[in-house]
Amino acid sequence: MSSHPIFRYYTASTLDGYLADPDDSLDWLLTQPIDEGGAMNYTEFIADIGAMVMGWTTYRWLLENEVSDGKPWPYDIPCFVFTHREITPIADTISVVTGDPGSKRDALVAAAGGKDIWIVGGGDLAAQFADARMLDEIVVSFAPVTLGEGRPLFPRRYDLELVDTARNRAFVCARYAVVGPRPRVAS
């Protein structure tokens, strides 16, 4: 752990760059074979995470799919939900926040306790963190599926540097350093 946490966007995507279909379904992801102990796996990733952030759509998906039927909130680390909606957190570890990521930097770093910060999603929230210069790394597991439409992986023009690649059963996994915004070239 460093004194400066790494802001990481760790996610999965379809080959054509979508996180979810237009109805926010992840059925394309949940049917793919993966080795839980394989390359770029979640268990190793989450061990370095001290706090997490997500947008409303991701939070709602978790409520509907992971916390339904009386199951508890699956995370014990601080979680910040960025939204303009009035919501009541379902766990003591959840904070509902508004505003741009830059205005929450100090609170996120403090909550992470010297560990890294996971931008769970969605793609637009991750891009807002990048715009605030608060996204250091993108780790994506690409599934052998195309959707043609849906929630985009990262809806901004950015240059990335490929740092590492691996295969985890059906997934091609890639780790990128965020270089910065990609300028528009006049035609």
Rank of each mutant, 00 (worst) to 15 (best):
W61K: 03
F80S: 11
M1C: 08
R60K: 11
D131M: 02
N65D: 12
V109T: 09
Q128W: 00
A170L: 05
S3H: 06
P33W: 05
T11G: 01
P33F: 03
I87Q: 10
D48V: 00
F45I: 01
Y9A: 02
F80V: 06
A126R: 07
T165L: 14
R8E: 04
T98E: 10
F7S: 04
F142H: 06
W56R: 15
I138L: 02
I46V: 10
T11L: 10
F45W: 05
R151M: 15
W61V: 00
I138N: 03
I90Q: 11
V96D: 11
Y59L: 04
A110D: 11
S68E: 15
V185R: 13
V185G: 06
G70N: 00
N41G: 02
A51E: 07
I119F: 05
A107K: 03
L108E: 06
M134P: 01
C173L: 04
G113I: 03
E36Y: 06
I46K: 13
I6C: 12
L160M: 06
D116Y: 12
T146R: 05
V145Q: 13
T14K: 09
F82L: 07
L19Q: 02
G150N: 10
D76R: 12
R157W: 00
A39K: 04
P144A: 15
Y9I: 02
L62Y: 10
Y9F: 00
Y18F: 14
E86Y: 01
E36R: 08
F142R: 08
L162G: 04
S68M: 06
F7T: 00
P22T: 03
K115Q: 11
D106A: 11
D100H: 06
V178F: 09
G50S: 08
T88I: 12
C79T: 14
A110R: 11
D24A: 06
G123V: 05
W73R: 11
P89V: 12
L63P: 01
D21F: 02
P74R: 04
W61E: 05
R60D: 11
I6L: 15
I94G: 09
A39M: 04
F171K: 08
D131L: 01
I94L: 08
R133D: 15
K104D: 02
H4I: 10
V139E: 14
A107F: 04
V179S: 14
D92H: 08
V96M: 11
A39L: 01
V53K: 10
I34N: 02
L15M: 08
D16Y: 01
A127W: 05
E64L: 11
I49N: 15
D106V: 00
H4M: 09
G123N: 12
F154E: 08
Y18S: 06
